[in-house]
């Protein structure tokens, strides 16, 4: 089963990370990613820019309109995701737990099974 592991956290808190904290979290997360990539279970991984960089196209019966900012104003923001291929939900939860150890504190990981997946072409990595 393919799962998306969606990362939610307060972007204020994440933006307040010092460079050392940021580097530490990123390298700890990379270690988890390497482990699952080696097992052939890790797909695309993305970290999103702050919601201030977001633009939303609102559909409406007439013409859709563009608004600045994220789709919803929430206390915790959608900050990134991992796509993984896991045998069971338990395995997906175990992966999320490892992410939580690498990046402790507040926030949440939503584990969401995929209905459709189109891997698309290869994009240049950032």
């Amino acid at each position: 089963m393919l799962y998306a592991v969606l990362c939610y956290n307060s972007e204020d808190a994440v933006a307040a990370w010092s460079r050392e904290e940021e580097d530490k979290v990123m390298s700890d997360l990379a270690a988890v990613e390497r482990k699952y990539a080696a097992a052939g279970k890790l797909g695309p991984v993305a970290r999103l820019m702050p919601t201030t960089a977001a633009t939303t196209l609102r559909k409406s019966p007439g013409e859709s309109f563009v608004v600045d900012g994220p789709f919803a104003e929430t206390k915790e923001q959608f900050l990134g995701f991992f796509l993984v291929d896991m045998e069971t939900l338990d395995e997906a939860i175990a992966f999320a737990r490892e992410l939580a150890v690498a990046n402790p504190g507040v926030g949440a990981y939503e584990i969401r099974p995929l209905r459709v997946f189109k891997p698309g072409g290869s994009l240049e990595a950032l």
């Binding site: 307060s10 808190a13 307040a16 990370w17 904290e21 979290v25 402790p104 504190g105």
Partner: peptide
């Protein structure tokens, strides 16, 4: 990140 530093972050944000 230590236990206390996430509290600091939460408080300052």
């Amino acid at each position: 990140m230590s236990e206390l530093s996430w509290i600091d972050l939460a408080l300052s944000s």
